[in-house]
Simulated assay, not measured.
Amino acid sequence: MILYNVTVNVEETVVGDWLTWMKEEHIPEVLATGCFVEHKILKLLQEDPEAQGSTYAIQYFAETMHQINHYLNNHAPLLRQKHVDRYLNKCVSFRTLLEVV
């Protein structure tokens, strides 16, 4: 199993809208690609007191690296652009790939 993790710091002014949009639109679109079998949304609890915003980890689980590559090559660019268009400079994210061992 391969974990595609997207860590996102979200400005407080849009957290509510962002969470709703993620749950009702973005994540269902990602799952509709057929590349992932499961997902989770987690919130970072121990943030740096000087940090601004809230940090979330959106985890998508795929059975094979082939599915990850298919997603990254064929679906990710459009879905990422939708996120950027909606939230502009109100979110900062980075992505990691991990293997369940």
Rank of each mutant, 00 (worst) to 15 (best):
Ile2Ala: 03
Ile2His: 05
Leu3Trp: 07
Val6Ala: 02
Val6Met: 06
Val6His: 01
Thr7Cys: 01
Val8Phe: 01
Val8Ser: 01
Asn9Tyr: 03
Asn9Gln: 14
Val10Glu: 00
Val10Gly: 01
Glu12Ala: 05
Thr13Asn: 12
Thr13Glu: 15
Val14Glu: 02
Val15Ile: 12
Val15Leu: 05
Trp18Leu: 06
Trp18Ser: 06
Lys23Phe: 00
Glu24Ala: 06
Glu25Gln: 12
His26Asp: 05
His26Trp: 11
Ile27Cys: 09
Ile27Asp: 13
Glu29His: 10
Leu31Pro: 02
Leu31Asn: 00
Ala32Glu: 15
Ala32Tyr: 08
Thr33Ser: 02
Thr33Asn: 02
Thr33Phe: 02
Thr33Trp: 02
Cys35Lys: 01
Cys35Leu: 01
Val37Trp: 05
His39Ala: 04
Lys40His: 12
Ile41Met: 15
Ile41Val: 15
Ile41Pro: 03
Leu42Tyr: 14
Lys43Trp: 06
Lys43Thr: 09
Leu45Arg: 11
Glu47Met: 09
Glu47Phe: 01
Glu47Gln: 14
Asp48Ala: 01
Ala51Gly: 06
Ala51Trp: 04
Gln52Ile: 10
Gln52Lys: 15
Gly53Trp: 03
Ser54Ile: 06
Ser54Trp: 11
Thr55Gly: 08
Thr55Met: 13
Ala57Trp: 13
Ala57Arg: 12
Ala57Asn: 14
Ala57Glu: 14
Gln59Asp: 06
Gln59Pro: 13
Gln59Ala: 11
Gln59Ile: 15
Phe61Ser: 05
Ala62Gln: 04
Met65Ser: 12
Met65His: 12
His66Met: 05
His66Pro: 02
Ile68Pro: 07
His70Asp: 11
His70Leu: 08
Tyr71Cys: 03
Tyr71Leu: 00
Leu72Pro: 01
Asn73Glu: 13
Asn74Ser: 04
Pro77Gly: 03
Leu78Asp: 10
Leu78Gln: 11
Arg80Glu: 15
Gln81His: 09
His83Tyr: 09
Val84Thr: 09
Val84Glu: 09
Arg86Cys: 07
Arg86Val: 06
Tyr87Met: 02
Tyr87Cys: 00
Leu88Cys: 08
Asn89Gly: 13
Asn89Ala: 11
Lys90Arg: 12
Lys90Pro: 00
Lys90Leu: 13
Cys91Arg: 10
Val92Asn: 10
Val92Met: 11
Phe94Ala: 11
Phe94Gln: 09
Phe94Arg: 07
Thr96His: 05
Thr96Gln: 10
Leu97Tyr: 03
Leu98Cys: 08
Glu99Lys: 13
Val100Pro: 00
Val101Asn: 07
Val101Gln: 07
